[in-house]
């Protein structure tokens, strides 16, 4: 039988969905039985929501600030790039 530690490890690493159908069934049953693991899974969801809210914060503080300022500045620099090598190794 799957343990709380195993469920928590999979939930925290984001690997619940990558498990076999049988394991996912085991996990669902475990979550139905275990309020602590359910809470942990809820925490993961809450952290994702918090991340999305932070994204909105950065969106609203963007130098673009609702207009196209950021894009205009970026385009201006692309038309007049700085001299020198700026090669990336990606």
């Amino acid at each position: 039988m799957i343990t709380c530690k195993q469920v928590s490890t999979l939930a925290t690493s984001g690997e619940l969905e990558r498990q076999s159908a049988w394991t996912r069934l085991e996990i669902r049953f475990h979550l139905w039985m275990c309020k602590h693991c359910s809470r942990l899974v809820r925490q993961m969801r809450q952290m994702r929501e918090a991340g999305r809210r932070l994204r909105s914060t950065f969106e609203s503080e963007s130098p673009a600030g609702g207009d196209s300022g950021l894009e205009v500045r970026v385009l201006a620099k692309l038309r007049n790039p700085p001299t020198g090598n700026d090669e990336q190794t990606h």
Partner: peptide
């Protein structure tokens, strides 16, 4: 962060 965005596009075009 804005400087980095500009750098990303400059590097993208260079590569």
């Amino acid at each position: 962060a804005e400087d980095m965005v500009q750098d990303v596009f400059i590097t993208f075009l260079a590569s």
